[in-house]
Amino acid sequence: MSGRSHMPANGSSLHDPARQSPSFWETAFSGTDPDALSEILSTPNSPIKAAAQAAAPIAYRCNFISTEELAIADCAYDGTISIRREAPNGKLIIFLPMEGNAVFDAGKEPIHSVPGRGAIIGAGRASGSRLIGPRRHLGLFVDQAKINRQLTHMFERTISGDADFHPTIDLTTGSGLVLQQLVANLYYGLSGDGPLQQSPLARSALCDAMIYLLLETCPHRYSEALALPAPAPAPRHVKWAIEFMQEYIAEPISLNDIATAAKVSVRTLQQGFRQFRDTTPMAYLHELRMLAAHRDLLESGTRQAVADIALRWGFTHLGRFSAEYRKRFGQLPSQALKR
């Protein structure tokens, strides 16, 4: 289907927003102005600049559906459009083309995306692209934090950072074909008066299925570890230690305190965390506190200062906290506070 047949002649918005509910939102835009397209595609922390090649005419139609877990876009473009993302946006982005060509610059080699060949752009990368219309694709946007939560659950240890997915995916067979079908089913099931609007359990199951399919079948940093046999369940003393940390997370507890609560020696406790959590007890506690601070920053808006939240969770050196937070979550604490 050509994107051209769907393009209004002016820069109007089809509906903005079209529909909103507590669990999903839909917005749609169309037009011919590159600056308006830049604004549509940008987020506060990740601005995007769109431009028409040689000032030739362009047109676009973009429809976005966002759930609590992820977002899907159905976008069509006419003309040749260059797009530059000026900062990483913290999301894993998967482009599933139905028509036309696109080239993404997000690594050592350009990523070519045509029907049958999808592109995966990592969350930690700013990227440029060139869309050669008529071009149409579905886009799947997943917070890297969501990916890491699933990996943390699968490994039973804290996972952070970019998963470094292989940048291309075959959409003609196997898991790539299934992924494209799942994304299309979720999109069309939510758009208009789709049946998934009335079925939050089915919607959530589809979202989880897409993420697990990505993690279990698409090559990434943790693929080899996932292919290994599952480790034995963590012993009681490790579980007791974690329960103690969670209960007294905001208190100045020491390694000796944790070992005493777990009813083992410090050495046994350290060996247990190395073997079953691939970390140390104090590093695990540090990660719990960082995640708690992250949650507070996202939920408090501008009602609290970054320093107050950092101190609440035991981070007394604000500069060091900010540096670690940016490395862990891809943005400064002050940026998270303003979301």
Score class of each variant (00 low, 15 high):
Ile211Glu: 05
Ala102Pro: 06
Ser175Tyr: 09
Ala55Asp: 13
Pro195Asn: 01
His15Thr: 06
Gly330Lys: 04
Phe64Ser: 08
Arg289Val: 05
Lys327Asp: 15
Glu299Ala: 13
Ala227Gln: 14
Ser160Pro: 04
Asp208Val: 03
Ser66Glu: 13
Ala241Glu: 11
Ile147Asn: 00
Glu26Tyr: 01
Glu99Leu: 12
Leu291Lys: 14
Thr43Arg: 15
Val264Thr: 01
Glu86Gly: 12
Tyr325Gly: 01
Met1Tyr: 11
Ala126Gln: 13
Ala59Lys: 06
Gly189Ile: 09
Gln181Asn: 11
Gly314Asn: 03
Arg61Cys: 08
Arg157His: 11
Glu69Asp: 15
Leu297Trp: 02
Tyr248Pro: 08
Phe329Met: 06
Pro34Thr: 02
Ala292Met: 08
Leu297Gln: 05
Ile48Arg: 00
Pro22Ile: 00
Gly139Met: 07
Glu251Ile: 00
Tyr284Ala: 05
Ala73Tyr: 08
Tyr248Asn: 11
Tyr248Phe: 13
Tyr60Leu: 03
His137Val: 06
Leu96Ala: 03
Leu337Gln: 07
Ser30Pro: 10
Ala18Asn: 07
Asp193Lys: 03
Asp35Arg: 10
Met1Thr: 09
Arg303Cys: 12
Leu215Lys: 05
Asp278Ser: 14
Ser127Gly: 07
Gln246Phe: 00
His6Ile: 12
Ser46Thr: 12
Glu251Gly: 10
Leu214Glu: 08
Ile147Ala: 07
Pro195Ala: 12
Arg295Met: 11
Gly133Gln: 05
Phe24His: 02
Cys207Thr: 02
Ala209Phe: 04
Leu201Tyr: 12
Asn148Gln: 11
Leu131Arg: 03
Pro97Met: 02
Ile65Cys: 04
His6Asp: 14
Phe141Ile: 07
Phe321Pro: 01
Val142Asn: 05
Thr32Gln: 06
Ile40Cys: 13
Leu337Gly: 04
Arg135Ile: 00
Leu288Thr: 02
Ala87Asn: 07
Ser12Tyr: 06
Ser334Trp: 04
Pro134Ser: 14
Leu171Tyr: 07
Leu201Thr: 14
Leu298Ala: 15
Asn10Thr: 15
Leu151Gln: 04
Leu214Thr: 04
Arg289Thr: 00
Thr173Glu: 13
Thr268Ala: 10
Asp16Trp: 08
Ile309Pro: 02
Phe276Trp: 11
Arg149Trp: 05
Ala310His: 05
Ser265Phe: 00
Phe24Lys: 04
Arg149Leu: 11
Gly107His: 06
Met210Thr: 02
Glu109Val: 12
Gln181Met: 10
Lys146Gln: 15
Ser38Glu: 03
Ala36Thr: 07
Ser334Asn: 05
Val178Thr: 07
Glu109Gly: 01
Pro110His: 09
Thr260Ile: 10
Ala250Tyr: 09
Gly31Ile: 01
His153Gln: 15
Leu140Cys: 08
Asn89Pro: 09
Pro17Phe: 06
Arg339Glu: 01
Cys207His: 09
Gln304Leu: 08
Ile81Asp: 07
Ser46Cys: 14
